Computed example of a mutant assay.
Amino acid sequence: MSSIKQLQVTFDCAEPERVARFWSEVLGYVVPPPPEGFTTWDDFNRSLPPEDQGSWSVCKDPSGVGPRMYFQRVPEGKAAKNRVHLDVRDGTGLVGEERLAVLEAECARLVALGAVRVQLLRADGVNEFCIAMQDIEGNEFCLD
Rank of each mutant, 00 (worst) to 15 (best):
K81V: 13
G96M: 03
R83D: 12
L113C: 06
E76W: 14
N82W: 04
Q72S: 14
P75G: 12
G77T: 07
E97I: 07
Q119W: 10
G77Q: 10
E104K: 13
N82P: 05
G66I: 08
P62Y: 00
G96Q: 07
E106A: 13
D90L: 13
A79F: 11
V118K: 11
S63D: 11
G77Y: 02
V88Q: 04
T92N: 14
L103T: 08
D90E: 15
E76R: 14
Y70M: 14
V65F: 12
M69Q: 04
V118W: 04
L100I: 03
K78Q: 09
A108H: 06
Q119S: 14
V95L: 14
L100C: 08
E97S: 14
Y70V: 14
D61T: 06
V111D: 02
S63I: 00
E76C: 12
A80L: 10
G91F: 04
G96N: 01
F71Q: 04
G114M: 08
K78S: 01
R68H: 11
E106I: 08
G114T: 05
R68Q: 15
G66R: 08
A79L: 13
V84Y: 02
V88D: 06
A80W: 03
A115S: 11
A101Y: 05
V116S: 15
F71R: 00
E98Y: 02
G114L: 01
A115E: 02
L94T: 04
Q119M: 15
R89W: 08
G96D: 03
L86F: 08
V111H: 10
L94Y: 10
G66L: 01
N82M: 03
D87A: 11
E104D: 13
V84R: 05
V74G: 00
E76M: 14
E97Y: 08
R68Y: 10
R99G: 03
E98K: 12
V118P: 03
P67T: 02
A101N: 09
G64T: 08
D61F: 08
M69W: 01
P67A: 05
G66T: 01
G96E: 07
E104R: 13
G91V: 01
P75N: 12
G114K: 08
A80P: 04
R89N: 15
V102Y: 07
D61R: 00
V116F: 05
K78M: 02
P62T: 01
P62C: 01
N82T: 01
Q72K: 11
R109P: 06
V118G: 00
A108E: 14
E76A: 15
L86C: 02
P62S: 00
